[in-house]
């Protein structure tokens, strides 16, 4: 039963998360409220691990959430659910729709989705911030990190490693 539910929920995420791996976060946050599969703290850990291991973030997150929820089989089922809508839609697009003017039509349709997705992620970030930005020290660390990201554009894994060291040194 858990497998059917996992597959269904991740199919929905695969269908609705338009624009990349980070877009799955608001949907996964909703799942953590809806079911008893993992906590919001777990979600933050899973995002970090998905960002610092090889592979697309969205796939990593699906595998991780699936594993935490339903073991090895859960990891495979959730990932299959996530990619199934992609595979079907892309085959349809490649077969019937692909032409220059149609692809620009799709891009224009996105006009509304991009800002909505920005709002979705902002809101998810706000909700998750309440878990980890709990005192002045953590807020200062987050702001410095955000500043560094804007200035230096290093890979996320660098900041994640720095944060792990800071966490151990300051005994957060």
């Amino acid at each position: 039963m858990i497998y059917v539910l996992l597959f269904w929920e991740f199919c929905k995420i695969g269908l609705m998360a338009i624009g990349g791996g980070m877009v799955t976060i608001p949907f996964l946050l909703e799942l953590s409220d809806k079911y008893d599969w993992y906590s919001r703290d777990d979600l933050l850990n899973m995002i970090a691990i998905s960002e610092s291991t090889p592979g697309p973030i969205g796939v990593n997150m699906a595998t991780y959430v699936g594993y935490v929820t339903g073991g090895l089989g859960g990891g495979i089922i959730a990932t299959a659910g996530l990619v199934l809508p992609s595979v079907i839609i892309i085959i349809m697009v490649a077969k019937y729709l692909y032409s220059k003017d149609k692809s620009s039509l799709m891009q224009r349709l996105l006009l509304g989705v991009r800002p909505a997705v920005a709002a979705l992620i902002l809101y998810a970030g706000w909700e998750l911030a309440q878990l980890s930005l709990i005192n002045y020290l953590s807020i200062v660390i987050a702001l410095i990190m955000l500043g560094l990201m804007q200035l230096l554009k290093w890979h996320p894994i660098v900041y994640i490693c720095m944060a792990a060291v800071i966490g151990i040194v300051f005994e957060l």
């Binding site: 995002i47 980890s132 930005l133």
Partner: peptide, 20 residues
């Protein structure tokens, strides 16, 4: 380590919002 990492994940999300 993960307490530190959870802080930076919020910064990463904020960074993604800035990009979007």
């Amino acid at each position: 380590a993960f307490a530190g990492i959870r802080i930076v994940v919020v910064a990463l999300i904020a960074n993604a919002v800035v990009g979007l």
